[in-house]
Design a protein around this nucleic acid. Structure first.
Lengths: 271, 271
DNA sequence: CGTTGTGTTGATATTAATCAACAAGTGTGG
DNA sequence: CCACACTTGTTGATTAATATCAACACAACG
């Protein structure tokens, strides 16, 4: 089956799943605007004259710990994360902080109502991003009606995720929150199923849980601020899950999920 | 200035504000599909043949306490609330409940990713609503590119509201939560400023706070489940605000906001 | 080799939840 | 009209979950 092309020779695919970033992409060639191989809105410009839109994106590298979007500032530009992870957070005047999410490659930030950013964004590690000015974005949207539908789909997904987080923060216990968080992180990474066992196979199949490894790019403080807890409670809850053999912690940033079923039940509030 | 018309003689206006429902409407004539004078998506069908779309909407009356949308069910239809208020909630298997919002006239429900409703909806009082089948909605969207932009704007607003609620649930105290809630309810209703005092006026102007009345259509249980608290804590917090002369409670469902400034500071987490 | 950032663990405090009683309002039926 | 059940809201006593305060372990780094 032939892939659609954008007239410049490279294949274009678009797909989106719940809780995963929309990827409007992009064969093997680097993006003509940002010179990156990562998915980009640039690639959505099928059949358009890319040169006309060349000033649409300003590629930028952002060092760790840099705040590149400030809550309340005029939302001059949309930001597309190309590489790295950012924490998105809101703050109260006395310093209390609440993360509203983490943004990885492919995420769009800054589609804000009332022209103001509703959260701040800070690079967790080095981040590579593209900025799109609001006026350019509006022009692009006018040219590409399909794009608006994709954005709607994405924002609807983010809304559903936010409402899931509202349930978590309003009604779940610390254990349930952490289990939910770990499973969500696990779902982000491509799941590598274990090798199939020899078949046909003598004797009953051993019942063994799949083990999934999760690497956490964020600190305990981030996790705490995301789950509405303190850093100490997060640490203690990790310890409790470890003691119950639900997880293993070879390193603080590496979690092995030893009992996916049990963890999933816990995350769903079933015990 | 001439109003745009939809070809059938009645004027059409569209406006939306943060936290307030989008209203795509509608002079003085009742909606041709739903025979209601309330704002409706039907009214967005400017210049289209209404008869062609006559089966788009199925007007319905829903009695109080009826659940008309169930979390997890296939999202067969979009629902537009015409009249009355509904609670939108998610549940955990052991009965814990979290409201994700209240939906009043003009609100759309059911724009869900993955084709499943992400929350349940239950009428607080009698509710009048229109259902739009998903396929019809898709056809309408194909016909009316402008509609998609409006939906995007709305969903982006809802997302910002949800993230505000995440901050509330994750980091605010009971007092701050209730203050935030009361101010948000106050902002829903058209604010009636006090009569201007005679001018020119002798003597210094008396410094007096504006007093705003808020009527709550929902129960304490709803407020508790919305704010991530228990019914007792909500009741006690009402009592505490009353004792501090920040509010008055002539009746349980009627709140007078006696110190808007102080309440706003409290809601913002400033003390 | 100290310094700093991050994570863990222990002791105690505090907020809000839980358990319990009761008051006020509403509707029903005798 | 009143007795009764039932719902909703309030208030008090106690408990439990999590926050706060504090100490310390460990790795990374200049």
């Amino acid at each position: 089956m032939a892939m659609p092309t954008n007239g410049s020779g490279f294949a274009v695919r678009a797909f989106a799943t719940r809780n995963a970033p929309l990827v409007i992409h992009a064969g093997t060639d680097p993006c003509r605007l940002c010179e990156s191989r990562h998915a980009s809105i640039c690639d959505a410009v099928e059949g358009k004259d890319l040169a006309r839109l060349a000033d649409l994106a300003v590629p930028a590298r952002v060092p760790a710990a840099k705040v590149f979007l400030i809550e309340g500032d005029p939302a001059d530009s949309l930001v597309n994360i190309r590489n790295g992870v950012a924490r998105l957070f809101k703050s109260l005047p006395d310093g209390r902080r609440q993360l509203v999410g983490f943004a990885g490659p492919g995420h769009f930030l800054g589609l804000s109502p009332a022209g103001r950013y509703v959260y701040s964004a800070e690079a967790i590690g080095p981040v590579e991003l593209c900025r799109y000015s609001r006026s350019r974005m509006a022009a692009l949207l006018a040219d590409l009606p399909a794009l608006e539908g994709r954005l709607l789909e994405r924002v609807a997904n983010e809304l559903a995720t936010a409402q899931e987080q509202i349930l978590l923060l309003g009604r779940k216990t610390a254990r349930e929150r952490l289990a939910t968080f770990l499973l969500a992180r696990a779902a982000l990474h491509p799941f590598v199923p274990p090798l199939p066992r020899p078949w046909p196979c003598p004797g009953p199949a051993p019942v063994r849980e799949l083990v999934q490894t999760v690497v956490l790019p964020m600190t305990r403080q981030d996790i705490a601020d995301y789950l509405g807890l303190t850093i100490e409670t997060v640490s203690r809850t990790f310890g409790a899950l470890k003691r119950d053999d639900l997880i293993a912690l070879p390193r603080p940033d590496t979690v092995l999920l030893l009992a996916l079923t049990h963890l999933a039940e816990m995350a769903a509030g079933e015990n």
